[in-house]
């Protein structure tokens, strides 16, 4: 039985060591904490959280993921939510989460200071998601390539059907990218469904690739991999600021837009702090951080200065985008299935 004795001794030792470890663990800070899912770019997320921590003393744990990924995570975690608030990212997944009851209602005292489109988002989502920034859809062309090919500068959606642009236009696949779905919905709203699909079918001949990510066409345009890229205009602007030979175009027929949103997750463990963040994120001071981080969307608070590089929403012909209708799962499924059948699977 000597081994049993040794086993006993080591087991007791291990047990006491464990007790020591557990008793050494120190309790956390007093102001409480907050877990934020951040769906904009890292260099915008970080200063945002740092500024909030500095202002309130609340400790922020931030995880950055794209909005589609965050939606999938919030849905998977619904039984035991780990996040408190979801800030940023295109509005569609926020709307979907609101529709499925994954996020919760909140009315901020700051609502009165916001632009109409931000409040409309809040109303359409049954008070669950609110707009924090907005960006219009558009396309950009590589100035070098256009000059080389001696093409006229495209100004309208219709110009993209030019046979000379065969295999020269890039856009994301609406099945994977919210950006591209916004375009699909925009076309349907501008032209009516039948005409919109006729247009997309015609455009299909000029498309060289349906990318997976919505912002990829902007990058491809900057590198000269494609002549024209369709994406949100602020994604193009980021490339131009970096020095890419590109010009961004607000299509003459008008265009749709996204509303970057914010939602409080249902069952948030730190609800009070989430509300504090919510109110704070709608202030001009918090929204001004975006431009400093080289993100050129239009902020939702009327008092926030619009960054000079940002595409001016006032100069863009914006359509009256029906987020409630085109954000619903039913309509989305129907349009995507139709796009798959009538556009994507057609020969060129």
């Amino acid at each position: 039985m000597s081994t049993t004795g040794a086993g006993l001794r080591s087991a007791l030792l291990a047990a006491s060591a464990l007790t020591a470890v557990f008793s050494a663990a120190a309790p956390a800070a007093a102001e409480g904490q907050l877990t934020v899912y951040c769906s904009v770019q890292e260099e915008w997320c970080r200063p945002m959280m740092a500024a909030f921590e500095k202002e309130t003393g609340i400790k922020v744990s931030m995880t950055r993921k794209s909005s589609g990924e965050t939606y999938a995570q919030v849905k998977a975690e619904a039984a035991n939510p780990k996040g408190d608030i979801w800030w940023g990212g295109t509005g569609d997944p926020h709307m979907q989460a609101a529709e499925e009851g994954l996020t919760q209602e909140y009315q901020s005292p700051k609502n009165a200071e916001l632009n109409d489109w931000a409040v409309r988002q809040w109303e359409q989502s049954k008070h669950r998601a609110i707009g924090v920034y907005s960006g219009a859809l558009g396309f950009a062309y590589n100035t070098k390539l256009i000059a080389e090919k001696k093409l006229a500068e495209p100004k309208c959606w219709a110009d993209l059907l030019d046979p000379k642009l065969k295999d020269e236009v890039q856009v994301a696949d609406p099945n994977s990218s919210g950006t591209s779905y916004t375009m699909l919905a925009t076309m349907v709203q501008i032209m009516g469904e039948q005409k919109a699909f006729d247009y997309l079918k015609a455009l299909h001949k000029n498309i060289n690739q349906y990318t997976k990510s919505g912002a990829a066409p902007a990058k491809a345009t900057s590198l000269g991999e494609t002549t024209v890229g369709i994406a949100f205009m602020h994604d193009h602007v980021t490339m131009i600021v970096e020095g890419a030979p590109m010009k961004v175009v607000a299509p003459c027929e008008g265009t749709g837009y996204e509303i970057g949103s914010m939602s409080i997750i249902k069952g948030a463990k730190n609800l009070d702090n989430a509300k504090k963040f919510y109110d704070w994120a709608l202030t001009p001071a918090a929204q001004a951080i975006g431009a400093q981080a080289k993100s050129y969307q239009v902020p939702s608070n009327k008092a926030t200065p619009v960054p000079p590089q940002a595409p001016k929403l006032s100069e863009i012909k914006l359509i009256d985008f029906d987020f409630a209708k085109y954000g619903s799962s039913e309509e989305r499924k129907r349009l995507l299935a139709k796009w798959d059948a009538e556009v994507k699977n057609q020969p060129k």
Partner: peptide, 23 residues
């Protein structure tokens, strides 16, 4: 890991993917 990372345990690759997404 893209769904498993948390604020305390973020992984290099998700950081890199974020950078690639941002161009």
């Amino acid at each position: 890991v893209i769904f498993l990372v948390s604020a305390q345990y973020n992984m290099a690759t998700t950081y890199i993917v974020g950078r690639v997404e941002a161009g």
